[in-house]
Design a protein around this nucleic acid. Structure first.
Length: 186
DNA sequence: GCGGTGATAGAT
DNA sequence: TCTATCACCGCC
């Protein structure tokens, strides 16, 4: 089994765009019922704070968004369209980074991990993981190989057309070399 | 292209 | 309580 070293919570305590770029090449690991499932992060989106109209925290502090105002490095999970979970890394101050695609590393054979809903299903994540720290089991971000800036492409975020001028901002990032970015990101 | 599905937030 | 909305996906 591959070695997986959790990153410290302080890794995520930076400008949200920097975190979104720095997470590319890191690993997302889920340890559950004796199964280890892990993938390399190849696509992210930054939701930069309450002033960002695409960001859930722009609705203010609610029971759901409270975790985004908490300490960096914790998980923010939510259900969209009644059946798909999305997983974010909290940056703090109302900001978070959505993980949109993984390259399978371990325990994900024959499962699709290109897309925010697919990857949470493949990893077996549940809403119960919401607000948990991401530096320890069962769910953590592990040290990987950073993606050099020349291989990172920025583009508009997916599915946020309602967000006015914020919809067009280049806050999605992906590793150009990866075959596993979600379809609409290529 | 279209609809399933259920948590969430705000209205009633 | 009721209703609108939704950071998606699979199938047509």
């Amino acid at each position: 089994m591959t070695e997986h070293t959790p990153l410290p919570l302080s890794f995520h305590a930076r400008d949200p765009v920097k975190v979104a770029r720095a997470l590319l090449g890191m690993d997302l690991v889920h340890l559950h019922q004796g199964r280890l499932r892990a993938g390399r992060i190849v696509e992210t989106e930054a939701y930069v704070g309450p002033h960002d109209l695409a960001c859930h925290s722009s609705k203010g502090r609610t029971p759901r968004t409270e975790v985004m105002f908490g300490p960096p490095g914790h998980a923010y999970l939510f259900l969209v369209y009644g059946m798909h979970l999305c997983v974010n890394v909290v940056v703090g101050e109302g900001a978070a980074v959505l993980i949109r695609a993984l390259e399978p590393l371990e325990g994900l054979e024959d499962l699709r991990t290109d897309g925010p809903g697919r990857l949470t299903r493949a990893l077996g994540l549940t809403l119960k993981l919401n607000a948990r720290p991401l530096d320890e089991a069962p769910l953590f971000v592990a040290r990987g190989v950073p993606v050099p800036p020349r291989h990172i492409e920025a583009s508009p975020r997916i599915g946020v057309d309602y967000a006015g001028e914020w919809a067009a901002k280049p806050l999605r990032f992906h590793d150009r070399r990866s075959m596993f970015v979600s379809r609409r990101a290529r």
